[in-house]
Simulated scan of single mutants.
Amino acid sequence: MAMGLHSSDGGRGRRGGRSRAPMAEINVTPLVDVMLVLLIIFMVTAPLLKAAVPIELPESRAKAMSEEADQLTISVRRDGTIFFETSPLAPGELPERLASVRRGPDGKLPLVTLRADKALDYGRVMDVMGELNRAGFTSISLVTDVSGGSGS
Rank of each mutant, 00 (worst) to 15 (best):
M65E: 14
L89I: 04
L142I: 11
D127Y: 09
S139E: 13
V143S: 10
L94S: 04
L120P: 07
A62F: 02
D79T: 08
I140K: 04
Y122G: 13
L57T: 08
L114T: 07
D70P: 00
P91Y: 01
D106P: 00
T113F: 00
S141C: 01
K108S: 14
D121L: 09
K63R: 10
N133Y: 09
L109V: 06
E131H: 12
A119S: 15
R78Q: 14
E93Q: 14
L94M: 06
G123W: 04
V112D: 06
T73E: 03
R97P: 00
A62S: 13
A99G: 09
A64Q: 12
L57M: 09
P88K: 04
V143A: 14
V128H: 01
V76D: 00
R102N: 10
K118T: 14
F84M: 07
G80I: 09
A90T: 06
E59S: 11
A135P: 02
L120C: 11
L114W: 07
D127L: 14
G92P: 04
G92L: 03
L109K: 12
G149V: 08
F137N: 08
G123F: 09
K108G: 09
F137A: 11
P95R: 03
L114S: 07
L89W: 03
S75P: 05
E67P: 07
S66C: 00
A69S: 11
